[in-house]
């Protein structure tokens, strides 16, 4: 039995168990439950929405079906079982999602149990915290469990461009990419926040203050993703965001094994911004030339940036130099 089949079998057994629990336990408890059930609670712990027993069960099974569909898609279509860097997040996500469905149903049943009417069902804060803890713990367990398993032989890194470095010279590469739309959004956000802030200050009774946080967030996020800068030099690669070069991320060359150039479009990565899971992510500012950093640990980070060919060449040349003169 291949590892993939075993992975599917274990996950499938988990899903079937979860499904059996979601059907059997509510049916067993049904005589002690009110109809309709309280299914949603306000911040105070008071029930504020109801649903029928059948709807609740159908919803649970639909969620489980979605989770199983994701499992099948990830394993069969995206080879998630065969690569540790994909297997771990997928296992963590599946374990967390199944635990969430189970824990939410358990808390709902416990709150409704032996209540004469749904209005009497109360859900205090503590169980909610326990649910969140359980989800995080299950996710961590899934992550850890998936760490064991086959590691594919490291694929040959496609050789990127390189260059010759002269002795006694210090070569650096500086480049950036700009997204004018994000810049416009940032400007609009900041200008809107200024106008709304002024109006809210002038007319404090109008309740305009609530519009302020979203505008400030639009302004900030727009400013940060408006521009990405990359610089290569000495022993590190520094990636910085926004006009003030902060936040920034530094990657020591020790953590890299090469760099290549690709052409990437937003539709391939799923849109603009920071895309993908850690180890396979893309910083997509604009479509086109992309610098792909390959980590020594096997992952990669892609950054859309102008003049990526020279950047990749310098990284590869610096890495080659380090191998020759450790």
């Amino acid at each position: 039995m291949s590892y993939r089949s075993r992975f599917l079998a274990v996950c499938g057994a988990g899903a079937v168990t979860a499904g059996a629990l979601l059907v059997a336990v509510p049916l067993w408890l049904r005589p002690r439950l009110p109809e309709p059930l309280a299914v949603h609670w306000g911040p105070s712990g008071q029930a504020d929405r109801t649903g029928s027993f059948g709807t609740a069960m159908a919803l649970d099974l639909a969620m489980l079906g979605l989770i199983v569909a994701f499992l099948l898609y990830a394993v069969l279509h995206r080879d998630a079982a065969d690569h540790p860097d994909r297997r771990r997040p997928v296992a963590a996500l599946l374990a967390g999602a199944v635990t969430l469905v189970l824990a939410v149903r358990a808390a709902t049943l416990a709150a409704n149990l032996d209540r004469p009417d749904w209005r009497a069902a109360e859900l205090p804060l503590m169980p909610v915290l326990f649910i969140l803890l359980a989800v995080v713990a299950a996710g961590a367990l899934g992550w850890a469990a998936a760490a064991h398993g086959p590691v594919p032989p490291p694929r040959e890194t496609p050789a990127g461009p390189s260059m010759r470095l002269a002795a006694g010279r210090r070569t650096v590469w500086v480049s950036s990419a700009v997204n004018p739309w994000a810049g416009a959004a940032a400007l609009a956000g900041v200008a809107g926040a200024a106008v709304v802030g002024l109006l809210a200050w002038l007319f404090p009774f109008a309740g305009l203050g609530t519009a302020l946080p979203p505008l400030v967030i639009i302004g900030l996020v727009g400013a940060i993703v408006h521009r990405v800068g990359v610089r290569v030099g000495d022993d590190r690669v520094v990636i910085s965001f926004g006009p003030f070069r902060a936040p920034a991320r530094t990657i020591p060359l020790d953590n890299l094994r090469g760099a290549t150039v690709e052409d990437r479009q937003p539709y391939q990565t799923g849109g603009w911004g920071l895309r993908g899971l850690p180890g396979r992510s893309t910083i997509m500012i604009r479509g086109g030339e992309t610098l792909v950093l390959r980590y020594a640990s096997g992952g990669r980070l892609a950054i859309t940036v102008d003049d990526a060919r020279h950047g990749a060449a310098l990284i590869n040349a610096l890495l080659a130099e380090r191998v020759q003169a450790p």
Binding site: A166, G168, R169, R170, T171, V172, W173, D307
Partner: peptide, 9 residues
């Protein structure tokens, strides 16, 4: 942009 400085200059 690729720039090179001579360290002994």
């Amino acid at each position: 942009m690729l720039l090179t400085l001579d360290l002994n200059d």
